[in-house]
Design a protein around this nucleic acid. Sequence first.
DNA 1: TTGTAAGCGTTATCAT
DNA 2: ATGATAACGCTTACAA
Lengths: 334, 334
Amino acid sequence: MRDVARLAGVSVATVSFVVNDSKPVSPATRLRVESAMVELDFRRNAVARALASRRTRIIALLFPVLQHRLSDNAARFFTGAAEAAAELGYTVVLWPEPSDPDALREFTSDGLIDGVILMEVRLDDHRVDRLLAAGTPLTLIGRTRDPSGLDYVDVDFEGMVELSIDRLQALGHREFALLEEVERADLDGYGPVIRVQETFHAVCAARGLRARTLQCTPDPAGGREIAATLQEEAPEVTAVLVLNDRAALGFVSELGRRGVSVPDDLSVVLVASTREVSEAADPALAVTLLPAAQLGRMGVETLVGRLDGTLGELRHELVMGAFLEGASLAPPPD
Amino acid sequence: MRDVARLAGVSVATVSFVVNDSKPVSPATRLRVESAMVELDFRRNAVARALASRRTRIIALLFPVLQHRLSDNAARFFTGAAEAAAELGYTVVLWPEPSDPDALREFTSDGLIDGVILMEVRLDDHRVDRLLAAGTPLTLIGRTRDPSGLDYVDVDFEGMVELSIDRLQALGHREFALLEEVERADLDGYGPVIRVQETFHAVCAARGLRARTLQCTPDPAGGREIAATLQEEAPEVTAVLVLNDRAALGFVSELGRRGVSVPDDLSVVLVASTREVSEAADPALAVTLLPAAQLGRMGVETLVGRLDGTLGELRHELVMGAFLEGASLAPPPD
DNA sequence: TTGTAAGCGTTATCAT
DNA sequence: ATGATAACGCTTACAA
């Protein structure tokens, strides 16, 4: 920058003004500076800028150690976030969750990041308290029990469930079941499971539909077990919503093996998953897609908006994914 | 740091020496400095340090826009990389691949990163040239056609294929097929596909086993098509290696639907995938796991070793994943 | 072993 | 509209 200033015959301050467009500069000098920059192939140093401006324009993605997932939604989320950040002149760093929540201080306290995006937020999330206490700007993916003071973006699980029920009800179904994960210690207070369950029962009740919950372990074996006992345990059910994709694949696979036809005997909707998982089932499952990339993008846009001061009020937004029809929907059997 | 120095009654330089352990400091002053740091809850500012030392300790993960994958290996890779980086005092940032390879210059030229890890390296990879030209320290995940001058870590596809054939041969199989993706423009020059194919044929030839290649689209439908025509096209085959996990699920699903028993009629091994995908099939497939997290970890360790100068010679390493038995292996039918 | 002081490459304040 | 210059918080010769 010093070199640019010298070549253009101005001071470094002036160069800074044109680079950042932070003060009015006469067209003539601006031109001189710009051509000097081109000539010297000038790139402003991000580190020096960060030190002087006290803003690194780096944001962190705090994500939990990965559970054994089938779909690659985490990667899609990262991609969406990183792309949005790049467009906004920011950079995204990855923070795998420390086992000790207090260790978050180590992360936040060295001045490298301007703010944090918190993934997989629990209803009662200690990380939120820690980060707020540290004064770290924060955007949530998901919500705490009372997220009123925080920016958040969350999946519209309620909308997904209602839409799924809409489709099934339109086909004539009246006997519903929700296949969900058994309560697990590590999912305690995990919003999606709770919200899906509540919504499922509420919507069914409001519409006079019969609803029951089936619990299984979150893996194919769990889904298989339910399929094996379904006709004895819940012979009236004609429509099933499944919240776990691994369980869903085991479930439909075992149904097929037992001669229960999807969709002729039973209609199935997979909630919050991907096209790839849906297609891995036979038949391909109707699915409400988890908009992972969009979620990542919106999370970044929200946090950056807050950091740049371009976001006025709090942002509380729910997003739904598309509904793919698949081949697992049909009217109920007589 | 100034405050710490004042409280400890030393100069900032001395504080710096104890913080970085960069010069001998007498035990007495070291103690005074350390207690002053504790007292003031001192954290060294990463940005100032980076500016002064001309090293940010940030490395970038350059990854391709995500293909439609079933498994979450990309996320595992990220996690492994980020964890290793944290342990080494580094930070990992995400760079989704720019559509224009020349745009890489924009990334590298602002001084924010010390080096990059390149994922999904092609045999002829323009990104490598661009980054080398820019003088960016580089570690490859995968290898170019001639990687002799570069550090790399790659999956030992050759070993995986050979191990899989070992197992099948020990069971008595002599008629093999490799189910792989059709050539696609976007996979042109993609090492794994090529190396697996070459190894497969080479190993079979060396052992006097019959080998043939079946090509399909990289999705469940592709696998289904092959399954549908297998008995006509290749009735002699008793053992199949599958390189694409989406195709693998379609393949075994369609076999089951057609009354071809896995493993009684046909043994199947899934190459380079995850336990979760394996279990999504019925029966669970024998699988050589893709060691994604380890790959990420090793990539970071390699690059950091190079940056810190602790790595002497070039590192060229191949890693294999574990072999999970599954329930898809049996002796060939009579 | 410890201190002094010159950077590192910007931004931002205050003059002019 | 532009320039001088003091931060920003640390590292690192070089001196003592």
